[in-house]
């Protein structure tokens, strides 16, 4: 199999290409792949951005427009008139930050117990986490609502955060356990022998080493909750998030308007920008975490 799929370097070894040539070819293939990747990823996004800056009257043309024709902020202005953007954004931010922090923290502790502390029933607990993902969220809404009502958790930020972080915890545990296993545990072992307490081990040794993985999961969970629709829609009518505001625009009314693409595209760009900023910031943290981990290792 591998013989059939020789890469440039292999070719060079057999004398088909000169080393310089093979390096050049290697680069070319890489750039081609990278280019097509960027094209596929960016084209729909570009199109959404383009739509959000195009006047509504020009959204439908044949052939479609590939470039900004009449740059306009009207869609954003209309959006701001229709939707209390700032309030929604604040709610989304509280919801997403809270949920990702709680889920990553809870999952970190649990996966440490599952990956490092060998105990009877660990497999069972782990399997239970796995299985609990398979309980479809949508099947639990009605009983959940009654439970939440009895606990006075409806229309509260913390109630919503509990729901969302619970939804994401099993997955986070799932990803973290194999990560933890990859990290050499000699350091922890040495610390334990030296008399370190568990919280010291967790805080001072494991956490720094896990930082890239935790940051990655934080971003993932942040995005999942930022875009989460069903829970905020049903449980927090008074703390509406951007996603709820968005679906209000996106559902298909049987009478009166319908999927206003001008507002929808503007709103989704509004939703994506904070996430992108966050990702760019955290990208630094991930890199920093990696290098620190490497230094210690």
């Amino acid at each position: 199999m591998a013989v059939l799929t020789q890469d440039a370097r292999e070719g060079a070894a057999r004398g088909l290409f000169s080393p310089a040539m093979s390096k050049w070819l290697d680069r070319l293939i890489f750039l081609l792949l990278l280019g097509s990747f960027l094209f596929v990823v960016l084209l729909p996004f570009y199109w959404i951005v383009l739509s959000s800056f195009t006047p509504k009257s020009e959204l439908f043309t044949t052939p479609p427009r590939y470039w900004f024709s009449n740059l306009t902020f009207d869609n954003y202005r209309a959006l701001a008139d229709n939707v209390p953007l700032f309030r929604y954004m604040l709610n989304s931010l509280i919801f997403a930050l809270g949920s990702s922090a709680v889920s990553v923290a809870a999952a970190f502790l649990a996966s440490y117990a599952l990956a490092r502390l060998n105990f009877r029933g660990a497999n069972l607990v782990f399997a239970a986490f796995v299985v609990s993902i398979a309980l479809p969220q949508i099947g639990t809404l009605v009983p959940l609502f009654e439970l939440f009502k009895n606990l006075n958790l409806i229309n509260t930020h913390h109630g919503l955060i509990l729901l969302m972080s619970s939804l994401m915890t099993p997955f986070t545990v799932w990803i973290l356990v194999p990560f933890l296993r990859q990290i050499p545990f000699e350091i922890e072992e040495a610390a334990v022998v030296d008399g370190a307490r568990l919280h010291q081990v967790l805080w001072q040794i494991v956490l720094p080493m896990m930082r890239p993985a935790l940051a990655t999961l934080f971003i993932i969970n942040f995005i999942i909750s930022w875009n989460e629709l069903l829970y905020p829609l049903v449980f927090a009518q008074r703390q509406r998030t951007l996603s709820v505001g968005l679906v209000q625009l996106a559902v298909q009314p049987t009478a009166g308007g319908g999927r206003p693409w001008d507002l929808l595209s503007a709103m989704s760009v509004t939703m994506i920008v904070p996430v992108l900023i966050l990702v760019l910031l955290f990208q630094r943290l991930i890199v920093a975490g990696l290098t620190r981990g490497a230094l210690k290792g």
């Binding site: 229709n82 829609l233 009518q237 679906v247 559902v251 298909q252």
Partner: peptide, 12 residues
């Protein structure tokens, strides 16, 4: 701003 369809109404 209320729901825009009966379906969304029931969901919410």
């Amino acid at each position: 701003s209320g729901p825009v369809t009966g379906q969304e109404m029931v969901t919410q």
